[in-house]
Design a protein around this nucleic acid. Structure first.
Ligand SMILES: NC(=O)c1ccc[n+]([C@@H]2O[C@H](COP(=O)([O-])OP(=O)(O)OC[C@H]3O[C@@H](n4cnc5c(N)ncnc54)[C@H](O)[C@@H]3O)[C@@H](O)[C@H]2O)c1
Ligand SMILES: NC(=O)c1ccc[n+]([C@@H]2O[C@H](COP(=O)([O-])OP(=O)(O)OC[C@H]3O[C@@H](n4cnc5c(N)ncnc54)[C@H](O)[C@@H]3O)[C@@H](O)[C@H]2O)c1
Lengths: 227, 227
DNA sequence: ATTATAATGTGAAGAAAATCACAAAATATG
DNA sequence: CATATTTTGTGATTTTCTTCACATTATAAT
């Protein structure tokens, strides 16, 4: 039975990404070694956390010596399978799809969008580095480039249908930008990214913060009154 | 001191968003009442979890009767401050910024991008519903519309600088799409969204899944051999 | 009206994640 | 070379999150 795959990126994995970004920056600045507390400061976590995370992912440094940045990055490349290239397809060349297709950083990280698909014949005329095909050529392209990962950027109503097609064609991982939880077999990884929710949660926390600040002021006031 | 605000959206909050999306869909289908296990099935969590989450956010139903969808949505609107409108500014009208500025769903959820800003004079000529201004008009606009929330879609190198400006102008919450952890005072909420990381984590979990599948096959093989 | 049933709400138990704290090891210093 | 210092790595502890389990209550059936 097709079901919602409850897929949540582990916080420890998210932090590993943060550490890596930080390491890349430090390396560019010519730094060669790093301590857990350096990474901690730069990423807003505690140094214990950094070491625990490294431990979880089997990364080890040397006592007193900290971590060799190059070695660390090498290990992370392995963890994230950055040694090989990843061919990706993108479905839906609308506003968001177009932006994503032009995003250079995917390529820099060995993630290549080899083809995009759109039902709109007009969109299929877009001239850019990446071809825009009609969806009926999906099987051909996915097979030819051995694609296993897909990006969904079609309207909400079409997302599930597109997802079903992709799964049938052998796609194993999907990042979905349509605000619609996708149902897929449990062995298929689906990362539902909902930018509206992300923005709304900022608003939520801002309000909470403002309320907490207000509370603090009341407390201060109260303490003042005692004198 | 400006520091990284370690800001992670709570999983329970993320789930509340899921429930809401599901409720909206059910309501459109004419459904009026819902049970915890309905929401659970639709969102890939357990019904216990749904009830615990509701409990955390102070949402109560009636025993045996489940939850009134309208009432539930009303309570959620309150929780998410959807009763009032939220004015937002967007900085950086490049590929991503343009897509975001055209995204209708923000408006549908009472989040209005009232103005966008770009240093590129060419971008300032974009003709769409939302005006594109030079950054030197930021103070004026933010004050006029009482803006408290901002979207950053500028290149990595400019992101921190833009963030600093925004904070100086009274912005309290930021969603940042540049792959650069922003430093801000602790009372300012910063949601760093990194789409590269999101995609890469899909690849990570796909590989893990494939490896686990392989493992399962080996185990099966082993069990078979015992007979 | 009484009884049976079905769903909620929440303490208790269990699991997972984060923090603490310190022994072990590597490097620096005298 | 011996000692002091610094940082790692990891068990122990604490905190947070999830699942379990069941008393409670609203509805349905008889
Ligand atoms: N625009 C944004 O900034 C933004 C932000 C977050 C999420 N999203 C979501 O991403 C999706 C795309 O948004 P958008 O603004 O680019 O919309 P859009 O309407 O501009 O683009 C959608 C594209 O998908 C194509 N399409 C529709 N059905 C298809 C199918 N079955 N197969 C292939 N292509 C198909 C359409 O022809 C169109 O080109 C939506 O689900 C939206 O909610 C958009
Ligand atoms: N394109 C994507 O799909 C995508 C996806 C994820 C993240 N991002 C990130 O979002 C950001 C924008 O990406 P993009 O592809 O739109 O890049 P882009 O180069 O197309 O757009 C950047 C825009 O920001 C403007 N800008 C630069 N400095 C500015 C400043 N100080 N104030 C105001 N405007 C300024 C530029 O003039 C340009 O129009 C980048 O950080 C990128 O890494 C992009």
């Amino acid at each position: 039975m097709k079901k919602i795959t409850k897929y949540v990126i582990k916080n420890s994995l998210k932090r590993i990404f943060l550490y890596r970004a930080c390491l890349v920056r430090l390396k560019m600045m010519g730094v060669e070694k790093v301590f857990s507390y350096t990474l901690a400061n730069e990423t807003g976590v505690t140094s214990d956390q950094v070491r625990k995370d490294f431990s979880e992912f089997g990364i080890r440094g040397n006592k007193r010596g900290g971590y060799e940045i190059d070695e660390l990055l090498g290990k992370m490349e392995k963890i994230f399978h950055r040694n090989k290239d990843h061919n990706i397809v993108l479905i839906g060349m609308g506003n968001l799809g177009l932006a994503l297709s032009k995003y250079q950083r995917f390529v820099q990280r060995n993630m290549n969008i080899v083809a995009t698909f759109d039902i709109d014949p007009f969109k299929q005329k877009i001239r850019s580095d990446i071809p825009v095909y009609s969806p009926d050529r999906m099987k051909e392209i996915i097979d030819r480039f051995r694609v296993r990962i897909a990006i969904i950027a079609v309207p909400e109503v079409s997302a599930q249908e597109v997802c079903d097609d992709l799964v049938r064609l052998g796609i194993k991982g999907i990042i979905n930008f349509a605000p619609q939880l996708l149902k897929a077999p449990p062995e298929v990884i689906v990362n539902n990214v909902n930018l509206c929710d992300e923005l709304e949660s900022v608003i939520y926390y801002v309000h909470k913060q403002i309320k907490a600040d207000g509370q603090k002021n009341i407390e201060l006031l109260y303490r003042d009154m005692k004198y």
